[in-house]
Structures are given as C-alpha cells and as structure tokens.
Design a protein around this nucleic acid. Sequence first.
DNA 1: GGCTCCCGCCATCCA
DNA 2: TGGATGGCGGGAGCC
Length: 956
Amino acid sequence: MSSVLVDLQNFNQKPQIGSLCDCGPENEKGDSFTEPYALTKTPRKQPVSHTLSTEPTYKMGSLTTPTKGKDSPACEPWTPTSNLKILLSAASPEIRNRAKELCGNKMEIAEPCNCSQEPAFEDESEKLPISRKEKSLGLLCHKFLARYPDYPNPALSNNICLDDVAGELNVERRRIYDIMNVLESLHMVSRLAKNRYTWHGRANLPQTLAMLKKVGDDQKYGEQMQQIKQKAFDRDFDFDGEEKENEDVQSLPDKENEWGQKEMLFVELPGVEFRAASVNSRKDKSLRVMSQKFVMLFLVTAPRVVSLEVAAKILIGEDQVVDLDKSKYKTKIRRLYDIANVLSSLQLIKKVHVTELRGRKPAFTWTGPEDFPSIKETSSSLSAGAGTLQSLENCTKNLFPSSGAKRGFTRHPSLIKLAKSIQDDRRKISSAPTSPIKVNPSDSESYPSKMDQLAAICKIQLDEQSKKSVRKNPPAVNAEKIEGRKTDESAGAAEPVLPVEANDDRVAQVQYPVQPARALSCIPVLLPQHAMGGSYAVYMHPSSVKPHPSGMAVRSMTFEEMVGGSPSHPTNESSMLEKASEKNTAVGEMQTINPQLQKHESTRSPKSPASALKRPCTEVAVNSPSKALKTKHISQGSSPDQVKLSEMRARLKARRGVVPNRPSPRALHLDPEFVNTPESAEAERLDRSVEKFLEKEEVLSPSDREAGLTPLRAVPLQEITVLPGHLHNEALIPTGYLIPISHQSLIRFKDPHCLSGETVYASVPNHNVHRTPTAGSVPVGAQEFTPTRFPVQRASAVSISPMAALGQPGPSPLPGQRMQSPSPAILNFTLQNLGLIPAGSPGSMPPAHRQASPVPTQLGLQQGGVIFVKPMSPMPLQHPSPGQPLALLSLQQPLMGTPKGTQPIQQSFFHTPGSTLSPLAAVVTSTGQTACKTAYIPQRKLEISTEDALCKEPGC
DNA sequence: GGCTCCCGCCATCCA
DNA sequence: TGGATGGCGGGAGCC
C-alpha cells in the first residue's frame, strides 16, 4: 500500500501526460499546446466514493472533503481520488479567499499543488466541499481557452488532444466534449481525428458569425423570436397562460413550416468542416447545432438579447417536437446553459435578466463582435476559391436541405486525406515565410500553381506593356507601373504596380506611392501568411478596408465593398492585378490582349482560381453576363480609355469574385455539397456585384478616375494601421512575429477596450480582447519553461504583469527589448510548436494566474491574461528591406525583468477568466501610458459586472 | 422554490 | 468489441 501511495504521490507531483494520452508523436515532442500540467493528475473518471471510502483512515475526512493529514503535505493526496478531492477543495477555498483578500499575497496559494503553504487552506478544504462554481463549464472553458491563443499560427501544429486537456484540467472527457462541441460550432476548433482537434482560435469567428447571421436570417429566426415574444407578451395579459404557453411551443413546428424553415444542420465553414463521429445520427440534436442556432438568435435580433425561454422554444420547435413536455423543455434549457457558459467564456454573450410581466427571466445578451464580415462578404469569401468554396447560398441549401433527407456530414475518406494533404502543404508553405509560394506540382488544379502561371503570364505581359509604354509614353505613370521602382517620384497619387509574378518579383514590383520603401517592407511579411501561398499585397483603400476573412493582413477593395459595404475577400493577387490593369489601362495600353490569356480564360471555368489572375488585361469579350454588364456600364458616358479601364476593372473584379481569396487549403476539402456550387448562381452574383460596383464607382469616384486613380490605392502599412473605422486595429502588419498576423482577423471587432488613437499600435489586432479571467497578464520568459519550475511563482516579465498593475515593483525593462516583445503567449506558443522551447514544460504561472485558476495553465499559451504585445515592429514602415520586419523577436523573450509598462501593449491576447479576482491588465498605449484595463471576471450572473470589479484591486 | 448546471449513465457510432 | 462521442435527465448546489 505504501508503495502505491508513493506512486500516487509521484504521480501527483508530476503529471504523466503520456500515460493519459496516446495522441501520438506530438505529445512526445511536446504538443503544440503543451498544456499546463494539471495541479495533479488523477485518473479521469474514478469512482470517487469508492476510492475514498477505502481510504478512511488517512485523515482524508469525508469523501467529498478529504482531510489532509497533518503529517503529510497537503498536496500529497494518498490516492488519485483523494488528490483530486484535495485539489478541488483547495482550489475552491483558495478562490474564495482570494475574493476576500482581493489580490493580495494570495497569489501564492493559487496553486493548489503548491500547497506547502496553506494551512488555512486545508481547513477550508475540510469544511468546504468543492463549489459547483469551481467546476462550472464556464470556468472550465476559460481554463481551456487560456491554453490557446486566439489567433494561432495555422502553419503550426495546433492540435488538441482531448486526453491531455481533460487530464490536465482535471475534468472528465465528457466535459471537454461539451466545450469542444460549442467551440466547434463556432469553428474555433475542428475535429482532426479521434480524440484530436485542431485549434483555430478566433480566426474563423467573424466568418462564422457572418454566416450564422445569414442563415439565421434565412431561417427567419427573428420572426420566430418575435412571434414567441409576442405570444408571451399577450400571455402576460391573459391568465390562462399555461395553456397558451404550451400552445405556442407546440405550434412552433407549424410556424416553421410556414416560414419554410427546415431542419437545421450544422453550419460549416470551408476549411473547418465537421468531422465528428456519429454526426449523422446526432447532428440534429447536437450541441453544435444548438449552439449555432443559439448564436443565430442573437445575431438576428435587434436588441441582441435572447432569453432562454425563447431560445429553448425555438430549439424545441426545430426538433419537431410537437408534444413538448416539460422535460423536453428542461432538457433544452440545460443544454442552453451549457452552451451559454461556453459562449460566456468566449465573451460572446453575457448573462442578463429580462424582466417581464411574468417575472424576471434569465437571458443572455450578445457581447461579441458586432461588426463581422457581412454576409455578402462572407459569401464571397466562401466562394472565393472558385471551385473549392461554396457560396453562402449553397451552404445554406445544404444546411437546410429542402428534402427531408439529411445531409451526411461524414466526409468521404478521400476527401479527408486530401484535406490533410492540403493542410500539410499549407503548413509547409506557411513555414517558409519568405520563400516563394510552394506549389504542388501534382496538383494541377491547385490554386497556387495556377496563380503562378497566371502571374507569370501577367508579368510578361505587363512587362511588355510597360516597355512599350516607356518607349511610347514616357510618363511617370508608365514608369511607375512598369517596375514600381520609379514610383517613388510619383509618390502620392501613384498606384501600386501590380506584382506580376506570383512569387518572386511581387514584392519588388509593388509600388507604394506614398511611402514606397516602407510599403515594400511590408509585403514580404504578408506574403508568407497567405494560406495557399498566394501573393498578396497590402493594397487597401482607406475607406474600404475590410476584414479579411482569413485573417490575412492583406486587403483590397472588392465589389462587395464598393457596393454595399460588404467587402468580399479580396484576392490579393487579383487586387494587384487589378491595380496593375488599371494602371495599364490608364495609359492606354490595355488594348493589347494577350491571346494566350484570352484563350486561357475562355477555357477556364469561372471558378478557376487561375482565371482570376489571368486578366490583367482586358479586352474582353463580353462572353459573360458580367462582361456585358461591365461593358454596358462602362460605355455610359465614358471615354474610350475610361471604358477600357472600367471594363478591365470590372472584369478583374468579377474574376476576383470567383477566385478571390485564396481559401485556406483546408477549404479545399469541402463537403461535396459545398463544392458543387452552381456556377450560374455564382456568375449571377458576380454580375450583380459588378454592376453595383460599377454604378457606385461611377458615382463616387469620378475625380479619382479622372486623376487616373482608382479606388484602390496602395496604402502604406502605417496608414493602414491607422485607418479609423475601417481597418480594425487588427489590420496590422506585424513585422516581428508573423504568427499573429496570419490569424489575426482583420475584421473589425468592437473592442471597447481598444486603445484608440494609436497609430502604429493601433494596427495591432484589437480583437475583441477576449479576456479570460485566469489569464494572467504576466507573460513568462522562455527560460522559465521548465517543468520543475512549475510550482514556482514568478512575476512575469511583461509590462502587463498583474503585479505591475498593482503597482508592485517589477523588473525594469531592458533597453532594446522594449518594442519587440510580441505577445509572450503567442511567442511561447509558437516557440513551443516550433520546438524551440520545451513544449510540455509546465509554465510558471504567475501568481495571479494561479489564483485565478486552480489549474495551472501552461505558460505562454495559457496565459490567458497576457496582454498581447503587439508583434509589430516599432518601425514597420521604416524598413525598406522586405525581410527586415521578421527579425524583431528574440527567442529570449522578456524575462521576468522584462520592461513593464514600457512596452506598447496592444491587447490582451487571451485573457482567461480565472476567478473573480482576475488580475488587472495594465495596458500600455502607444503613447507609453499605462492604462488599467479591467480584468475579466467570469460572471455567473450578468448583474455582476465583470469589468467593474476590476479596479478594486489596489494599485489599479 | 426556482434557477443553474454538474455529473455520469448509456445509446450510438466507428475502427 | 471496445473506445470515442455525446444525448440526456436526475438531482444537488446556489440564490
């Protein structure tokens, strides 16, 4: 027995993840998400009562509150079960104490395992059973989220092993499934394989929300909600409400039919398909679907407040439950609570109460991003990949099949393999930031290859044209467009020259009228980020900067943008081509049509990504409705040159609509239904877009056109970053670490906490700072990643340290470290993924963190509270050298002594709510001022302001 | 006493 | 057949 106890103790002291998860090599070498070791590991599912009952003599106390023997360290449970109990008990009181003692020195006790020091702790553990709150799904989700960055680098392995997570968070797998299901519904994760998921973070969130909104609109959820509310309202004045209540619920199915609503299935996003097992049989009741639907309800209603009652009724209605009984309703409510907890952890919703005549009812209000890609934009992006992505319409059709037949979500094995292959390719490509786009030769249909071909063709053609122009028309314009090298002179008004070659020359050829040198420096940074290796430039129209669904830091104006503010996903390549085309046209050289191109284009399906690139020049026969439209519009009161210009522009844009944003490689493995997007519909849509665009363009930018300018123009990186109201702060061009960029959604998330008025730093994604309570804001230096130090508490190096926030002295910043510090969390995460630092090493969780969460989170990644230090180069625009921006980070990241308050902290990357005592986040603005950011406090109840509580902490 | 929602049984699916 | 998933509802903690 004693030996067993010893083993158990050892086990507790050093989690044996390997034993818990056979997730493959990744774990061995350190999973990308090396998760923080749980305080102590205990067998996942243990008959607690049994185990404990067999340990009665060990001063373990009651079954639920194991007594820690005085002779033995509190942290050394005798059995796994008791250990778990102790830990949980410890955690609970600890948190409570924390709440009482504010954020004082309690930090040390945060670590349950670091139980050497808490006598009171023991006492409480004996008295107090684990609070339910400590085990809530919301808190668990916070812990979970704290482990991963909001915007992971897709190039890295972002796999999640459920066993690891469950084991390290000390929860049953079942609970993890609940979280994963909800996250999956938002496409924040996707199932990779059995027991494994891929973390996407919030990169897809804007798209997902946009799509859900669209689907919600299509499903008329708004109407349903209104109707239900109306009934409820009417019922308030009627006293036979009981009957009517049932009535309204029971009648839902009919109403749905009336609305033409079909059974809702899981809404997928390209690249983030659902591959869970047993989807066919359970998808209709899946938590995923419920989650998506729940979210839809928020998105389709005016005041984004949804009561559980309404949500439950709608959900029940869709389940075709005619004989709604109380139990069904209760079950739905339960599930909604589960979902709501997770969504709350994601800070997408917030608990509130709506007071009606009949009383106060629980409800939730939307606190997530308000501005996400419009449906059109999303649709465009989804369909951007031409043959690979589906339009929203098609997606919706699939999701709500008109026929009764349920759509199978099980992907054909071959597709899965293909997806993997693509993913691998993408990773390879992405991993070579400055290298040319990698094209898989074997994949003749691959977008990259076509891109290359097109790019090459375009380049040749442009070069030729440029030469001609130079010869014939020496104007500065020509010079500019030719190589862009002369653009410097023609600054301001000049438009960037289209990078003709997909890979190499692209950067060099891009012209940045305003600040060419700087602009150039940006390109290299961006290129590698493109998922498919496509080229992209940072062409942005100041007024039309739109979020790029894929999180690319590249944008261009699109039809949708022009038309109705629904930006589409600009294809960077297309954008560049377009600009180049425009330039060419402007100089009257666009008449030249490359037969090859024409032929090529004509033979290609509109969906062909390659075709998009092939049309820098446009001559263009009007063989398509869109062309006709373009011609028509252009012909209206325009000079020949203008006509050509417009025509070309329209053509390019139309093309772009088909090929635009290169979808993420993963998008290639879509469900057949999605892939089979009718071209006709697409073409039609494009035509409309073109038409609208042209119309608008004519009206809005005559002057520009006259000046030879197009709505598109190169925008210096700096400029981009400061685009107010358009480019969300996220539209930055990170120079240091690329990781954030690739995934930072450029979408404008409203973040009330965002620092405004920041220029350079403003570019940092202010993603809705999804703070999680536990997230300490203390980043940990890489050196601290040693398993043995896990228990050691350290103040973090970053300026955002909670300690700093509290006014406690901290290491002074090292000169030179000041600006480069990327988000420690991101950095750590990345480094771990790269194997540069120990992946599985337990993080030295900052005291604050520990306090917040009884479960140790891994350093770096788990530092939910880490303030995101903008990974941008302090002088992004000042480095003409393309590759320069990349060298901003040093592996030896901010140590404990990292500058506090000196670093421009852009955002809190992922704050994990750990407790009600979340550490304050000190945010340093670009001006060097340190602002006290409210720490997120997980709230069970909305009434309790999560952010208000913050500043109660001393030193804030 | 109602609201919340944890917990874990057990059905279903898949390899 | 066993493991992975996850639907489901009992029932207990919390307010």
